[in-house]
Design a protein around this nucleic acid. Structure first.
Lengths: 134, 134
DNA sequence: TTTTCAAAGGAAAAATATTTTCCTCAGGTT
DNA sequence: AACCTGAGGAAAATATTTTTCCTTTGAAAA
């Protein structure tokens, strides 16, 4: 996965952020897990960076959110999860295990908006049971 | 609005919860505002119940959530808001003022789910600009 | 009505969660 | 190699939410 690390480093630099081992590791964790909350990221990264501070994880999450490198997903009944920004998509959340999955967004979505409402974008979330939990 | 208070009282009793003036007031605030976060509810209710504890607001929100009387709405970039449970609907969130509006849900929603995913329900949120902010 | 009792309210403390401060260190440029 | 700004770590400060403990009250029963 050497190449991946380089990708993350470049991604950070493109956004005018310093590429640090901690940030690269965080992106690696998010890439592998798909969707992770702060605690997951912190516990995972501690395996490689034993003395990393939780504050660093928070600070990097906020910085990378601000740069648009990652995005926050607010999930019902759970702490927010984060994912690396990619092509627009929707989410499926398993109500058994809580796992979040990316799914393709509906091709079209006709919502009836009252007069004067200007839609900019839509987000769709499906709750249900995932294959592993059936 | 006398009648409304009776409605709230009955609503609580139907769910086996004690009807207290504080709970009735909270429901009244939610009904009037539509969607409110903890701080809004607390600040509003303090006008009538000067010495109410923030803990009481939290406890009642959790209790009424558990009973299904109210529901939590996780809004991007904001603290969670709560609303009285009503017929199923979607939400429009104004990215300028943060206000949440109820809108009718899309008639149909065809999402392509990978094999093995069992959808139970969908939630749609539209971000955009509301009439007041245009 | 009065009595009764579990559940609710209030105050304060505790537990969680997140951000900030402050100082040292390191990434990336000169 | 030297420089400088931004990043990391530790700890403190804030913010948020829950719990504890004791008093009060809603509402059912007597």
């Amino acid at each position: 996965m050497e190449t991946r690390y380089m990708e993350y480093a470049n991604l950070l630099k493109q956004k005018e952020l310093k590429s640090t081992p901690q940030r690269v590791a965080m992106l690696g964790i998010l890439d592998r897990k798909g969707h992770a909350d702060i605690d997951y990221i912190y516990n995972e990264i501690k395996k490689d960076f034993v003395s990393i501070s939780l504050a660093t994880v928070y600070k990097n999450v906020n910085t990378m959110l601000g740069a648009g490198i990652i995005q926050e997903i607010k999930v019902p009944y759970q702490k927010s999860k984060f994912e690396i920004t990619k092509h627009k998509h929707s989410h499926f959340v398993c109500e058994k295990c809580g796992e979040v999955y990316d799914i393709q967004e509906p091709k079209k979505l006709d919502v009836e908006l009252p007069e004067g409402f200007e839609p900019k974008e839509a987000s769709v979330m499906i709750m249900g049971v995932c294959p592993s939990c059936k």
